[in-house]
C-alpha cells in the first residue's frame, strides 16, 4: 500500500506511527487548498509583499521570487510561508478578482467550464420547458469566430414552423420564417390574433405574393409594391397598345411606319398620324392613314404645302381610314407641292 492517497496525494497514517499529528495536518492542509478552490488572482507574477494567512493564487508563467518555477500551481500562504499544490486535470477554480471560473485540463488553466450540456439555461432570468434558453438583457450578441456567422432555425417537417416571432408585451406583432410550409413568409398582426401575410416567397420559384403587393393591374393602393407585370418600365412601355373598357391592357406607346407614313398610338386611345407626300395638280390626292382611327370617328386633319410660294392647302371630309387633300395656287388651280399632313384622333 502506498503512503499517500491516489488523487490528492494525502499522506496516510502508518501503523504505530509517531508524530501522527504532523501527517494528519499535512493531509488537512492539502484538503484546505483543494476543497471549494477559490483564488484571489491568476495574473500576479510577483508574490504579494504582505499576504494574509490562507491567501491563494494561481501562479502564472514567468513568476518570480518564491513563486519561481511553480507555474500553474496553486500558491497558498499558510503558516507564514508559500506552499504549492499542483492541480489535477479536472480541477475547477473560482478567480475572485475576475468573478470567473477556470478549469485545469492537465496542461494549463482554461477559461470557462468547457463543454456544458444542461436541460435549461437562463441568463439573468428563468428558462422553462418551452423556452429552454432564456436571455433577459438589453441585447443578445451572436458574433463570428473569424469569418461569418449563421443563426440556424431547424424544423422537423414542412408542416412545422421555423420562424422568428416579434412580440409586444408577449402579444405577436410580426413573424418571419417558414410557418406551416416550406415557403418563406413575413406576417404582421395589429393585435396578435388576426394575421396578414404581407409578403410570401414561393419556395420553388422565389416569386412574391401578399398583401403588400399590387393585386390587380388597376390596384394603386397606397404603400403597395408594384408588380412587374402590372407596372410600366423599359420592358413594356413600348409595344402594342390595347385596352379593355378604357383600361390599358398593353403598352403605353405604340409607334410604327408604313408606306402611308408614321403613327403614334397612346394607351389612352389617342392616335397621331403624319406623312409627307406630293399633291396632284390633276385632282384631289388620297392620303390613306398609316393607322386606322376608330370606326365611326373622324380625325382632325391638317395639311400644309411645304413651300414658301403663296398657296393654300385644303382637305376634304376625312373618314376613319383616309382623307383627300389638295394644294391650290393663288390662281385657283391645283398645284403639285410637297405637303405635310397630320391627323389627330382616336384609335379606341
Amino acid at each position: 500500500m502506498s503512503d499517500v492517497s491516489a488523487v490528492l496525494t494525502l499522506p496516510y497514517l502508518l501503523p504505530s506511527q509517531a508524530q501522527k499529528h504532523v501527517t494528519h495536518n499535512e493531509a488537512l492542509r492539502r484538503l484546505d487548498v483543494a476543497v471549494q478552490l477559490a483564488v484571489i488572482a491568476r495574473d500576479v507574477t510577483a508574490p504579494p509583499a504582505s499576504p494574509a494567512q490562507g491567501d491563494r493564487y494561481l501562479v502564472p508563467a514567468g513568476a518570480s521570487g518564491d513563486w519561481a518555477g511553480h507555474a500553474d500551481e496553486v500558491a497558498v500562504y499558510d503558516l507564514n510561508t508559500w506552499i504549492f499544490q499542483a492541480p489535477v486535470a479536472g480541477w475547477v477554480a473560482r478567480v475572485l478578482g475576475e468573478d470567473a471560473q477556470v478549469r485545469f485540463d492537465g496542461t494549463a488553466w482554461r477559461d470557462g467550464a468547457g463543454a456544458l450540456q444542461v436541460e435549461t439555461l437562463g441568463v439573468n432570468g428563468a428558462a422553462d420547458v418551452t423556452n429552454r434558453l432564456c436571455s433577459v438583457a438589453p441585447a443578445t450578441l451572436l458574433t463570428h469566430d473569424g469569418a461569418g456567422h449563421q443563426l440556424k432555425v431547424n424544423k422537423a417537417a414542412a408542416g412545422d414552423t421555423a420562424s422568428l416571432l416579434f412580440q409586444t408585451g408577449w402579444s405577436g406583432r410580426a413573424e418571419m420564417g417558414t410557418t406551416g410550409t416550406d415557403d418563406f413568409a413575413i406576417k404582421v398582426s395589429a393585435d396578435g390574433a388576426a394575421w396578414i401575410t404581407a409578403l410570401g416567397f414561393d419556395g420553388a420559384s422565389g416569386t412574391v405574393s401578399g398583401a403588400a403587393l399590387q393585386d390587380s393591374p388597376t390596384d394603386t393602393g397606397a404603400g403597395k409594391l408594384a408588380r412587374a407585370e402590372y407596372a410600366y418600365g423599359p420592358g413594356n412601355l413600348l409595344g402594342t397598345v390595347s385596352e379593355t373598357g378604357g383600361t390599358p391592357t398593353g403598352a403605353v406607346l405604340e409607334s410604327g411606319s408604313n408606306a402611308n407614313g408614321h403613327y403614334l398610338r397612346l394607351a389612352d386611345g389617342t392616335q397621331i398620324c403624319w406623312q409627307q407626300m406630293t399633291s396632284s395638280a390633276a385632282g384631289q390626292t388620297l392620303w390613306s392613314f398609316p393607322a386606322g382611327f376608330l370606326g365611326g370617328t373622324v380625325p382632325v386633319v391638317q395639311a400644309t404645302g411645304q413651300v414658301q410660294t403663296a398657296h393654300f392647302a385644303s382637305v376634304g371630309a376625312p373618314v376613319a381610314t383616309g382623307v383627300n387633300f389638295s394644294v391650290w395656287g393663288l390662281s385657283g388651280a391645283r398645284v403639285a407641292y410637297a405637303t405635310g399632313l397630320v391627323a389627330f384622333g382616336r384609335w379606341a
Binding site: N258, A259, A291, T321, G322
Partner: peptide, 8 residues
C-alpha cells in the same frame, strides 16, 4: 394599290 394600315 395597297394602302397599309395599322388596324385589326
Amino acid at each position: 394599290v395597297f394602302a397599309p394600315v395599322r388596324r385589326e
